[in-house]
Design a binder for these strands. Structure first.
Ligand SMILES: NC(=O)c1ccc[n+]([C@@H]2O[C@H](COP(=O)([O-])OP(=O)(O)OC[C@H]3O[C@@H](n4cnc5c(N)ncnc54)[C@H](O)[C@@H]3O)[C@@H](O)[C@H]2O)c1
Ligand SMILES: NC(=O)c1ccc[n+]([C@@H]2O[C@H](COP(=O)([O-])OP(=O)(O)OC[C@H]3O[C@@H](n4cnc5c(N)ncnc54)[C@H](O)[C@@H]3O)[C@@H](O)[C@H]2O)c1
Lengths: 208, 208
DNA sequence: ATCATAATGTTACTTTTTTCACAATAACAA
DNA sequence: TTGTTATTGTGAAAAAAGTAACATTATGAT
């Protein structure tokens, strides 16, 4: 099922909102509750659901539990997703120390670095030398890598991990990387995020 | 000039590509060079430029230097943009140690934390107690804050800094924050980025 | 000077995304 | 059972974003 990126992002948001509602004791939800929680309109919610064949009950809304099951299955959250982090520097180690991914069923299986000082093989979350990345990817069946290496190394590391079977990359280097057919790159570009914010703040300032 | 977020993001990308081209010795550029560099079509480039009244020369393309000047002025990069970071934990300190923002004319003026152990008042980049944030924002005229505090604290910190005059927030907490009229929130939600990547990798896997 | 060319700038078209509107219908009340 | 109501699911309309096409016009060649 090929679908727009935005639609999948909204699914993630619905899921998060549903967990919150569940925590608050709710059992069912209406499209406009979810819409409010996520910041879209009710029609968008229902349309998104219809794309994935998710249906609710006329008058009764949606059972949160069932809804979560379906969304989780679509998003692949019904099974543990293992990822690796390449580059155990500032960003890389912040990510590796972060506990929030586990709650989401995303496990950082290992980190990799070229700096021998960073290697820590016997940790719960081991940091391994980059030379071992191929074996690790193959043996663990890893599909996703987070790239947190210096800008200059990013393309070469991408080429390496793609050649080892990685199919998706979350890249923190503020560069446009070229990826082989069949490998998806999502960029987290904080410079651009800030620039964007600065622009809109300045515009609001001016038009005030 | 009110414009779509995507259009501004593209402006940032054009700018980055232009600097690269300039480094390579180029003096002028055509819309399709830029399009290739950024991964859009030439028509988009020209349209984006026309929105901002940026014009080139029939046949001659665009002078990179002039183009950069105009884009930089639109993005507010012709003057130093000062931001603050709230929360000097894993993500917060990674950001504060990052040198990449300075190259972009973005200066992290200070960090703030509630943990006394994190305070470091006499550093080049001081980390100050949260109580001082109001005075700092006012005296330095700060408009932008990066939120890197625990999820649970994010909304309350947003309320605080907005009440002190902050107009734009880059939020790392995976929550939808409510912001007062006139304050823009951009979210960096890494869980959702990963979920998204996982979805599309899995879809590609299945349809193969 | 004149012409051919190459690239812009813009208008018209297409596609995608979002919103609107309402018929269909399950739930509940009388 | 019948009627009323509330909410879904969807098709049509509107808006936004992106693409294509081409008339326009500087530039350099002849
Ligand atoms: N730190 C931030 O806040 C921040 C913000 C925005 C963007 N980024 C981007 O994130 C990336 C990482 O930044 P950082 O601050 O963590 O850098 P860093 O220098 O702290 O860490 C980079 C790590 O990568 C390792 N490394 C270098 N080459 C490698 C290779 N070929 N294979 C494996 N590991 C290698 C280094 O040994 C180091 O440990 C950079 O592209 C940077 O532009 C960082
Ligand atoms: N670390 C990551 O890789 C990562 C990844 C994704 C999202 N996030 C999000 O980023 C945020 C920060 O994560 P982290 O890992 O850096 O957390 P952290 O616990 O390492 O750091 C949080 C810092 O905020 C400070 N703090 C707490 N309450 C505060 C308050 N009211 N005012 C000012 N400072 C306060 C703490 O003292 C601490 O230094 C969280 O919302 C987290 O969900 C982090």
């Amino acid at each position: 099922m090929i679908t727009a990126k935005n639609c999948i992002i909204r699914l993630s948001r619905y899921k998060n909102a549903l967990y919150r509602l569940q925590t608050l004791g709710f059992v069912k939800v209406f499209s406009d509750n979810l819409a409010d929680a996520v910041g879209v309109t009710a029609a968008v919610v229902r349309k998104d659901f219809s794309v994935f064949g998710i249906s609710g009950n006329k008058k009764g809304g949606y059972q949160i539990e069932i809804l979560l099951e379906k969304i989780n299955s679509i998003l692949g959250k019904d099974r543990l997703q293992k990822v690796i982090v390449i580059g155990a520097g500032h960003i890389g180690s912040a990510l590796m120390r972060y506990r929030g991914f586990e709650k989401e069923g995303i496990k950082i299986a290992a980190g990799f670095d070229i700096d021998p000082a960073k290697i820590n093989r016997y940790n719960a979350l081991p940091i391994l030398p980059l030379e071992e990345v191929k074996d690790f990817i193959k043996s663990q069946g890893i599909k996703i890598a987070i790239l947190a290496v210096p800008d200059i190394a990013a393309q070469e590391v991408l080429d390496l991990v793609c050649s080892c079977g990685i199919k998706g990359i979350l890249n923190f280097a503020p560069l446009r990387l070229i990826s082989p057919e069949g490998c998806i790159v999502n960029n987290v570009n904080l410079e651009i995020e800030l620039e964007n914010l600065i622009y809109f703040v300045n515009v609001a300032e001016k038009t005030k």
